[in-house]
């Protein structure tokens, strides 16, 4: 965990996974009509007043954002004083920062927020969206959904009002009709003072220890407090690094394709010619992914994905090897592009 203390760099061996997960999530939220928004990393301190986890910066009234939600509210309200009728659906992702013992700690958050919709239907939609996401990542078998209602802040700790009960019943009914398996967990109360009414968590058990991957719910009252007027708000967020670890463990990630064509030069002096040849190849065959092995790379290593290998020889000629055809031919340098594009036969 020491990596996470300082915010770990994701090294290139992990980035294909990271990019794959991002792409899947992006597609899932697109299907539900959510818009991406970009939030500044430095936020005004006033926005996070009372949040002890926010890391302040010296000599300026800004903090490193600890959470995306207030930034979203600010962006959606956009300084408008009057209540907006529009429903807004947004999502964001990026690094967040919490104060730690040895300085600020970075983690990566992904969040989805829906504003202006007071009914239980949007809560159900958010849960359906998480289901879709986990299904797309191949995680749905390991995870279980727990829901609960906390009531309004006023009702928390006491009996639920009729409206809250009706809201929860509507949510459960919607989940039942859509066939989403869930369990009602009355002990799901850690979000008191933050969430009102609906809360939900996606959990899994790791050696009999309950772990939470994703948490969300309705936070009308928090949003109202944040922007100073009534605002219906509902959303969820998860720690992206947790998600990546879960996908790496349980998901069905397949590493993407490597380069299909590798160009290399037999002699270091031909490095520039090899780069120029690769430029012509990229222009003529835009769908082909081309890798240049430059003059300082050893010629022995070949990526497993390579279908073609072009080796520049002395005297304006080249050797082309094709995995598909199983031959290796010597051609003029000017013919290489045509042979690879299938316009000429060697």
């Amino acid at each position: 965990m020491s990596d996470r203390e300082q915010g770990a760099a994701v090294i290139s061996s992990d980035t294909p996974l990271w990019q794959w997960v991002e792409e899947r999530i992006r597609r899932a939220v697109y299907r539900y009509g959510y818009q991406e928004i970009r939030l500044p990393i430095l936020e005004s301190a006033a926005l996070f007043q009372g949040d002890a986890a926010a890391q302040p910066l010296e000599a300026a009234d800004v903090v490193l954002r600890p959470d995306g939600t207030p930034g979203c509210i600010k962006a959606v309200i956009g300084g408008r004083g009057t209540a907006r009728q529009d429903a807004e659906r947004v999502w964001y992702q990026g690094p967040m920062f919490r104060q730690g013992e040895s300085g600020p700690r970075q983690f990566h958050q992904f969040g989805v927020e829906a504003f202006g919709m007071p009914g239980a239907d949007i809560d159900a939609e958010l849960i359906l969206l998480t289901c879709d996401m986990f299904a797309a990542l191949g995680l749905n078998r390991e995870l279980s959904l727990e829901v609960n209602t906390l009531g309004t802040w006023h009702e928390q700790g006491g009996p639920l009002g009729a409206d809250s009960q009706r809201h929860f019943a509507a949510l459960c009914h919607a989940l039942d009709t859509e066939g989403v398996p869930y369990s009602v967990n009355p002990r799901l109360t850690s979000g008191r003072g933050y969430y009102s009414r609906t809360v939900f968590e996606w959990t899994w058990y790791e050696q009999h220890v309950r772990r939470v991957l994703c948490a969300g719910g309705r936070y009308d009252e928090l949003a109202a407090q944040c922007c100073g007027r009534p605002l219906a708000a509902s959303g969820f967020a998860f720690d992206f690094e947790h998600l990546l670890r879960s996908v790496a463990r349980d998901g069905h990630f397949e590493s993407g394709d490597g380069p299909q064509l590798v160009i290399r030069a037999q002699r270091p002096a031909q490095g520039v010619d090899a780069v120029l040849l690769s430029q012509r190849l990229r222009r003529q065959c835009p769908t082909l992914s081309v890798e240049n092995q430059l003059s300082d790379e050893s010629l022995t290593e070949l990526p497993a994905s390579a279908k073609w290998v072009v080796t520049l020889l002395a005297g304006q000629s080249a050797e082309i090897w094709s995995r598909e055809h199983g031959w290796s031919r010597r051609v003029e340098l000017s013919q290489v592009v045509d042979v690879v594009a299938g316009r000429a036969r060697p």
């Binding site: 020491s2 203390e5 300082q6 915010g7 770990a8 760099a9 994701v10 090294i11 290139s12 980035t15 990271w18 990019q19 990393i41 890391q55 302040p56 910066l57 010296e58 000599a59 300026a60 490193l64 690094p95 920062f97 040895s102 300085g103 600020p104 970075q106």
Partner: peptide
Amino acid sequence: REIRLPVLEGRAGAPAPTTS
């Protein structure tokens, strides 16, 4: 290949003089 770098730099263990 893409590399994702941390926004906060500096060595682990040594507390930074200032956050900025």
